[in-house]
Amino acid sequence: MTNIQYLAPTTLDEAVSLYAAAAGSARILAGGTDLLVQLRSGMINPGIIIDIKKIKELNSIEQKADGSFVVGASVSGTQLAKHSSFGKTWPGVLEALNLIGSTQVQGRASLGGNLCNGSPAGDSIPALIAAEATVNIQGPNGSRQLAVKDVLSGPGSTNLSQDEIAVNFIFPTRQLGSGDAYLRMIPRTEMDIAVVGCGVNLTLENNICTSATVGLGAVAPVVLEVEAAAEALVGNKIEEETLERAAEACRAVCNPIDDKRGTIAYRTKVAGVLMKRAATIASQRAEGA
């Protein structure tokens, strides 16, 4: 057995100084649904495990007076689903997080863990990008904010430095007539890794799309924001011709892997299909909002 320590600080300052002092030998523990698997398989061998779930900022959900939400990085899928208004405002983000794993995994899996694990197939990430969420990051030299779309730097890696902790996610104030949606394609109905995942967030005024953001996962080394797809939607009605142009923009940015779960051609085609379906659901939600 190696010499390993488990610490559960109750303040962010304490966590940040422990993490910085460990100089790269520590690992953050949120829900552990990635970390424990990596630990048990010997993939990682940390000297210190820092459990962040006892820190208030990381484990709470707050709706501000302006309607924006602040969601702690370690809040679990189950916790977020039980919140009285988050899922009504951001159904796409919630459905993306709630697609992760089983009921048991939901009891633990967090947005922060999904993002910081850095998988290009992380289900919540396209929805977070579509929502234009930003993440507050704390390190020994202070705090900074990054848009979620700028966090991933490659498969399994992020732009957080080894002494930085993701604290919480900020979801901007919602305009009237907005809706979001997330869809993923997997070969089974549950418990599998996305072959493609697509999040769409948009606003409608008199049936015309006035703003849109599209996030696309599992088709490139990092989750992508597809600006060209959003541009195809804006200024138009959400109808077949518009959707087809946006889908073409999604297919154009695909640079997926080729494996037994999906060939390049298949993943590329499905990216367009999911984008159309997600945009349709988002617009129906926007009409109802």
Partner: peptide, 21 residues
Amino acid sequence: GDCGACSIMLNDTLVCSCLML
């Protein structure tokens, strides 16, 4: 975390005890 045979309740939430310290 795949099979659920280790399921327990942690503070009234269903979790896999194999993925918890």
